[in-house]
């Protein structure tokens, strides 16, 4: 077991339905788990609850067996990649990457060496002195990955990491992510509303509808045995896509 959430609940408004209405699932160690669902299903909220960016009304979050529910976000040791990159515009690429090390008081020299290793890993050798504003969208996203990896996170949480990119770059970065995952073996949660992407990248899938888990399982299980009609309708779009994408 690796990332376990039990009966997570979170509501933002007094009336209206809750954003997350009792979500439980297990994301296996060392695998990419895709969190899938239509817009507003509560995917981002679940991920932010795991990271500690939101406080749950109820439920627990366990990382590798540790109950971290009451631990502040700074202490959880998760890597989070935001849809909008959230790179620090006033810092260079290298300074962005070592931000997490610098706030832990790792000496600048040591941190810089680590930054160059990471930039090599995300194929951005020689980009360390640039500003984020001088990079393309795909390059920025890889800097965001390097920054998240720099602190040796226990899990990697990705919220629509390719959401702001065009189709060609998404495909390319998807393959790159698979390779990266192969090398690091990090337990990864990948939120996406793009079903082909989820089916192509994830070994395990959790489908959310209206703040609840509609179904969880391997891509094959979901394709063969959709749990109910609504889910089938949501997933049917996938099977109509061209084969080579899935």
């Amino acid at each position: 077991m690796s990332v376990v959430v039990t009966d997570l609940r979170r509501r933002f408004t007094e009336d209206g339905p809750p954003a997350v209405a009792g979500v439980s699932f297990t994301a296996p160690t060392g695998a990419i788990t895709g969190i899938l669902g239509p817009s507003g299903a509560g995917k981002s909220t679940v991920l932010r609850l795991i990271a500690g960016l939101e406080e749950p009304d109820a439920g627990r979050v366990l990382l590798h067996g540790d109950d971290v529910t009451d631990m502040p976000v700074q202490k959880r040791g998760v890597g989070f990649v935001f849809q909008g990159y959230a790179l620090f515009g006033h810092l260079s690429v290298r300074e962005n990457v070592i931000f997490g090390l610098r706030v832990r008081r790792v000496p600048r020299k040591e941190a810089a060496t680590r930054a160059d290793e990471l930039l090599h890993r995300v194929q951005l050798d020689g980009f360390g002195d640039r500003r984020p504003s001088e990079l393309s969208g795909g390059q920025r996203q890889r800097v965001a990955f390097a920054r998240a990896l720099a602190v040796n996170p226990r899990v990697l949480l990705l919220d629509e990491p390719f959401g702001a990119l065009d189709a060609g770059v998404r495909l390319e970065l998807g393959e790159w992510l698979l390779r990266l995952h192969h090398e690091t073996g990090l337990t990864t949660l990948l939120v996406t509303h793009d079903q082909p992407e989820a089916f192509a990248l994830a070994e395990h899938l959790v489908v959310l509808l209206d703040g609840k888990v509609a179904q969880a399982g391997t891509p094959a299980e979901l394709r063969e045995h959709p749990a109910d009609g609504r889910l089938e309708a949501f997933l049917r779009v996938v099977s109509r896509r061209p084969r080579h994408l899935a």
Binding site: G52, L53, V73, Q74, F80, A86, F88, F99, R102, A150
Partner: peptide, 20 residues
Amino acid sequence: ELEEAAAVLGASRLQTFIRV
């Protein structure tokens, strides 16, 4: 998201204010 990113990376509120 900038401040959230800093927090996830381990920065305290004061560090986030000063550095971000």
